[in-house]
Nucleic acid binder design. Structure first.
Length: 447
RNA sequence: GUGGCUAUAGCUCAGUUGGUUAGAGCACUAGAUUGUGAUUCUAGGGGUCGCGGGUUCGAGUCCCGUUAGCCACCCCA
């Protein structure tokens, strides 16, 4: 016998989890579309040369690669951004700009696993390409806000910053050429203590006084306006720093005008993002109840997405929802629905002689948009209801020979353990309407 | 990729300084109840103790390797 097992970092998805995933994917799709983002898809596999050398050496090491049967060097995509860059270089002439797309698909990274970190996981990207407008930046933040709100997360924070602001501060400290080391260290502030980060900065050869100023800057918090005012003196002599400051002001004002609640979007000067290609705003978002989980939705602005594949300059802005990390967080917070079935109604197969009637009733309910699970065997009623309860079907319909004779049906609310008699006199429309109104009065859990 | 911790029934876990046939709760199956699912009672099924090797008269227990999970580094969703 072969031992059934899955590869490290790869997982099966059982119905309860798959239902939660699909529900979030549906919400993401709806929110993205509500801003006019159009769906695209690209292959899981790309020529290796398309994928290598784009991020750091790390991403090259994490790349799943192999030689295919035709001798081609092939890689599996490790994010959706690089394939999108290739996609734009090939198709942007046909599509025109600005172009807004969303892309929800699995990616693969051969890195070590941890909670919420897997080797196969799904990303839900959206990007606006071909415009440098601040409105596109604003919409990116608003999409993230709408998305997390629609998923039903009450407490979350979107942290934004601007790479130019960081760059300006580094410039004025004479550290412009050390930006990669500095940004990586600052990025750890959420996890490591300020003292530890300061030590690391000094370890990189940065003067203690400069490290202190960087930390003071990165530790700023409070209302966005106050943070920006506090940072301003640090970039007075930096043109790009001022531009970043102005961009953040515009962005904060925009979110306010769009009706986002105060405190949901904050300026955090320590947000840097590891990826080198960001050049303007950067954003991360956190569950307030589980900040150690890390960012569940991140992104930013870049000047030139597809420079490696085309001479056309394509600036853009976008972000990505890490649905697997989010699900891990929601599970830890006990916010996931335990239901194992999409069925809204369980139809008990009571009396074998009435099979034709059951089939007719099930078809009528389904035609009305109600998901019906009809039990395939005429087993004991108790057994069937037990199955319905275990799966978490919210309602059951019991119709036996007595009910058929009387023209009635028993509607059972499984959670409330209540039973309602429906008089339908053999008229399917009456039954369907009654079931429909009884079902919509139930309360739906958030996720 | 490096280091640390962990692995016993579907799930959560006991299992003594190494000692005979590895247990509990929950879950599952059947019955009490040939028409009613969170209660009760009765009976039952289910474990190569992650996997492989070693030490020993004897290993769930000790040692080595390996696989997987968690944690830290690294990086990131």
């Amino acid at each position: 016998m072969i031992e059934p097992r899955t590869l490290k970092g790869f997982r099966d998805h059982l119905p309860a989890q798959a239902l939660a995933r699909e529900k979030i994917l549906d919400i993401a799709r709806r929110v993205y579309r509500s801003y006019g983002f159009a769906p695209i898809d690209t292959p899981a596999l790309e020529y290796l040369e398309i994928l290598t050398g784009k991020g750091s050496e790390e991403t090259d090491k994490q790349l799943y690669r192999f030689t295919d049967h035709g001798g081609r060097e092939v890689g599996m995509r490790f994010d959706l951004t690089v394939p999108f860059a290739r996609f734009c270089a090939q198709h942007i002439a046909t599509l025109g700009t600005p172009f807004k797309r969303y892309h929800m698909a699995p990616v693969w990274r051969g890195e070590n696993t941890q909670r919420g970190r897997y080797r196969e996981f799904m990303q839900c990207d959206f990007d606006t390409i071909g415009t440098t407008s601040p409105v596109a930046d604003l919409e990116t933040v608003l999409v993230v806000h709408d998305l997390l709100t629609a998923i039903g997360i009450e407490r979350f924070t979107i942290r934004i910053n601007d790479r130019r602001l960081l760059g300006g501060v580094l410039e004025s400290l004479g550290l412009a050429d050390r930006s990669t080391d500095v940004l990586r260290s600052l990025d750890k502030l959420g996890k490591a203590s300020p003292a530890a980060v300061a030590a690391e900065l000094v370890g990189h050869g940065i003067a203690a006084a400069a490290a202190d100023r960087l930390l003071a800057m990165a530790s700023l918090s409070g209302p966005p306006g106050d943070v920006l005012t506090a940072v301003e003196p640090l970039v007075v002599d930096s043109e790009s720093g001022q531009a970043g400051l102005a961009a953040l002001r515009t962005l904060i004002d925009g979110t306010r005008q769009a009706g986002v609640a105060e405190g949901t979007v904050v300026v955090d000067p320590s947000i840097a993002r590891g990826l080198d290609y960001y050049t303007g705003i950067v954003l991360e978002s956190f569950l307030d109840d589980l900040p150690t989980l890390g960012s569940i939705c991140s992104g930013g602005r870049y000047d030139n997405l597809a420079g490696l594949y085309t001479k056309q300059q394509l600036p853009g802005v976008g972000a990505s929802l890490g649905i697997d990390r989010l699900l891990a967080g929601l599970e830890e917070l006990g916010r996931l629905d335990a239901t194992e079935t999409p069925a809204e109604m369980f139809l008990v197969f009571f009396d074998e002689a009435h099979l034709a009637d059951y089939l007719r009733i099930a078809a009528g309910l389904r035609a009305a948009g109600i998901a019906v699970e009809f039990f395939p065997e005429p087993r004991r009623v108790g057994q069937q209801l037990k199955v319905a309860a275990k799966k978490g079907v919210p309602a059951a319909l019991v119709i036996g020979s007595d009910e058929f004779a009387a023209g009635t049906a028993q509607f059972k609310n499984m959670a409330a353990q209540t039973s309602t008699t429906i008089d339908w006199h053999g008229d399917l429309h009456v039954l369907v309407d009654a079931v429909h109104s009884l079902l919509v009065t139930r309360n739906h859990p958030p996720v």
